[in-house]
């Protein structure tokens, strides 16, 4: 069943969030920009995964004619990889803001390209959407993210927690979100206690829809985060710690995205220390089927 692929579930949920954001939270993102992001992600993914398949086949030297070359473009492997690209593009639409199509296209292309460029032992270590956001923030001067865009309504918080739980159950990466939320919440609580703010300040910070969406849907990309549970705990705590520092000592409103970007390369190191089987979308599907 199609829904057994966690990517499809994720696409449905992210699509729903985008629809809710545009219709109820008066976001500024225009439909043409959504199209630009989607097409730039999908096209980049299609071309690059075809190139990868092509180079594999050439090594095996098992084809000769033009039609078999062209057949690469429609192999199931290339086509199913488009699902991940769609998730990345939805992530970008939810988080990145710009009024310039070129900026959105740059974000899409960089996001997907990062998966093919930054690899270690055949595994990419940057979260593609996050890489796209950082690329747009640094390479252009007309991109921004709006941390306040979801507000702190309980209705959205429960929706994110509920749907996030479903996806995390499917991919088995709930530990990452829990580790992040516990350590980040803990650090904020300690600061709050030290400053002497009342607890509703902490509550208000913690109920930010943007923070939860990040923790449940971006931090948990099973393909780019460490394979072992221990590795993921350390990795999440490192992100929580650097978010806390960047936010309160460098006053960066984009702290969470910068933290994930800075800590991502640690994945390689953590995978070397703690060995665990790599995540595979198909493996998950197989487990569920059986």
């Amino acid at each position: 069943m199609l829904l057994k692929d966690a990517r499809i579930t994720q696409i449905i949920f992210l699509g729903l969030f985008l629809l809710l954001g545009v219709s109820t939270r008066d976001w500024t993102i225009q439909s043409n920009l959504i199209l630009v992001v989607m097409s730039s992600c999908l096209i980049t993914q299609w071309i690059l995964s075809s190139v990868v398949e092509y180079s594999k086949l050439r090594e095996e030297d098992s084809f000769t004619n033009l039609s078999s070359k062209l057949n690469i473009l429609i192999t199931p492997k290339v086509l199913t990889s488009l699902r991940s690209a769609l998730i990345t593009s939805l992530g970008l639409c939810l988080l990145l803001r710009s009024n310039n199509p070129q900026t959105m296209a740059i974000a899409g292309c960089f996001a997907i390209s990062s998966k093919f460029l930054f690899r270690h032992h055949n595994k990419h270590f940057f979260n593609p959407a996050n890489f796209g956001i950082i690329a747009a923030l640094t390479l252009t001067n007309d991109a921004w993210v709006s941390p306040g865009q979801w507000g702190t309504d309980w209705w959205y918080i429960l929706l994110f927690l509920g749907l996030g739980g479903v996806v995390l159950k499917q991919v088995g990466r709930w530990d990452t979100s829990i580790a992040f939320l516990l350590s980040y919440g803990g650090l904020e609580a300690a600061r709050n206690f030290w400053l002497g703010w009342s607890w509703d300040v902490w509550q208000h910070q913690f109920m930010s829809g943007s923070l939860l969406l990040f923790a449940l849907f971006m931090l948990t990309d099973p393909r780019s985060i460490p394979n072992s549970i221990k590795g993921r705990w350390i990795w999440s705590m490192a992100i929580a710690f650097s978010t806390f520092i960047l936010q309160h000592y460098f006053y960066l409103s984009t702290a969470i995205f910068w933290s994930l970007f800075i800590v991502s390369p640690m994945t390689m190191l953590l995978d070397m220390v703690w060995n665990a089987p790599r995540f595979n979308w198909k493996a998950v599907q197989w487990t569920i089927d059986n």
Binding site: G162, D200, M207
Partner: peptide
């Protein structure tokens, strides 16, 4: 799944109702 959902809802409820504003 039900357990995860329940714990999520419970966490949410604690966040929202548990702490009274000053």
């Amino acid at each position: 799944t039900i357990r995860i959902l329940l714990s999520c809802i419970l966490t949410g409820a604690i966040l929202i109702f548990g702490i009274k504003p000053a």
